[in-house]
Design a protein around this nucleic acid. Structure first.
Lengths: 260, 260
DNA sequence: TAGTGGTCTAGACCACCAT
DNA sequence: TGGTGGTCTAGACCACTAT
């Protein structure tokens, strides 16, 4: 599969990257190990520092190493993945643990979860949101609720939930002071909107500069972009949540039957 | 959300990147437009060529532009997404159209699909595969079937299917000459394995060098990595397929009910 | 303070593309 | 052929980290 033999006329930066990659995959450089400094690599291999730097950049783009300013370049470990699927919304999970699915998943990994609602505003929905909520964006406003999800104080995900104003007006969903414990979906259920079916549209992309800053995303790590729509027992959509997750820490796990 | 105001002490490369990004998002530079050459950008903004180049690299990493050797740097258009979900496996789709779900999706977009099976081999499965197939990797071999998916001759996905030898021995699944038309799942069904439920584990990552080469993936485009397991009516797994898809052309669309 | 990565300069040559 | 991006050199200064 992966061809790792030297090519003729191979460029110095590629050659150096290939050598380092080999040491990483062979285990000579283990996760957490520090690579030689760019200056040392340059001297040892008889290239300019910028060339050694380019080699390191290639590895960073592949997600194999992470550079830390002033400290060095380190081999990235395999990260524990948090897996989220439709069980995220299961009622039994909420009833048995009293925990939101995010908290349950993080605690299961022995880490400390924290969820912070950073803003609740009332806005005119973007067309994509209004379309999924089945409302007229010019006639109805929505409540926009931004949640940040941390594990051991490291940011993992951002979720922005949109819900029609007429559904959440006066409820805890629209007022952080009244949210209480447990899942957002418990609050929806109390308002008569029990989540019964969902749609999840998944894609991946590189993070925007503000996402890099907000989620502290290292180089070479993409994000999963999940647009989730929740439907009640009558098939009516009542909330859309756009999740942005670090792809190196998060995965999705769906199990479903195949319809005829 | 996105902060695009100049910062004090902003670095020249970031400043130039921000200006170009602004022109792109404002529409002054439309999809398909060519950016000024690196040398022109450098001269116009009074920076070294390497600095202009760094600015372009930042935009490429965000997926906003693509550099084409010898031609120039171009603004990337929004790509049509092909959406795949559990309907991919629905029997009615196979029966009504006689097409594989991939072909159906691509034709629906007015493009020309092609699927090529590049290799069929019999191997000892990797532990992750054996685990999902519920077999002992030391006691049983699997058939490995590699399929490449194209749209207008542009590679979109690779899918590698693993199935226990005892299930596919002597069947068209293990012999490309006998495959015939239609979906692989039609062939499985003929062998008594009707796909009834599925599990899909989704994550995203940057492509490996060989994936970059094989799928012709531009800079700054991640891949979706989907491990799919197919189960028959008795809940027994009979095939695992690992899909690698360009994230800028592919999306996943799942609809499912939430269990109690 | 010494060592690290981050950025920048001002050149050079090469590989690719269109004309 | 001229213009483009791709790479490389050999320096320089800055920002961050650890001691």
């Amino acid at each position: 599969m992966t061809r790792e033999s030297p090519t003729e006329n191979e460029q110095p930066s590629r050659r150096l990257a290939r050598e380092l990659r080999g040491q990483i995959t062979a285990g000579d450089l283990a996760p957490g190990d520090k690579l030689p400094s760019e200056r040392a690599l340059a001297a040892e291999h008889g290239v300019a520092r910028n060339t050694a730097r380019e080699a390191v950049r290639l590895l960073a783009d592949e997600g194999l190493v992470t550079a830390e300013h002033g400290r060095g370049v380190f081999v990235r470990g395999k990260n524990r993945l948090m897996r989220f699927g439709q069980r995220r919304y299961a009622r039994t999970l909420r009833r048995e643990t009293g925990l939101s699915p995010y908290r349950a998943e993080v605690e299961a990994q022995g880490r400390t979860p924290r969820v912070e609602c950073t803003s609740i505003t009332r806005i005119t929905p973007a067309p994509e949101i209004a379309e999924r909520l089945g409302i007229d964006p010019e006639a109805e406003t929505v409540v926009r609720r931004e949640n940040w999800y941390y594990a051991d104080e490291e940011p993992m995900q951002v979720g922005v939930t949109y819900s029609p104003w007429h559904i959440v007006e006066g409820t805890p969903v629209a007022d952080s002071a009244k949210m209480g414990k447990g899942s957002l979906y418990a609050r929806f259920e109390e308002q008569g909107y029990a989540i019964t079916s969902i749609r999840e549209e998944v894609t991946a992309r590189m993070p925007t500069p503000s996402e890099v800053a907000g989620l502290a995303i290292p180089d070479g790590v993409p994000v999963l972009d999940v647009t989730h729509t929740g439907y009640d027992e009558h098939g009516r959509p009542f909330e859309v949540t756009v999740f942005v997750m670090r792809a190196d820490f998060n995965a999705l796990d769906y199990r479903m039957s195949v319809e005829d």
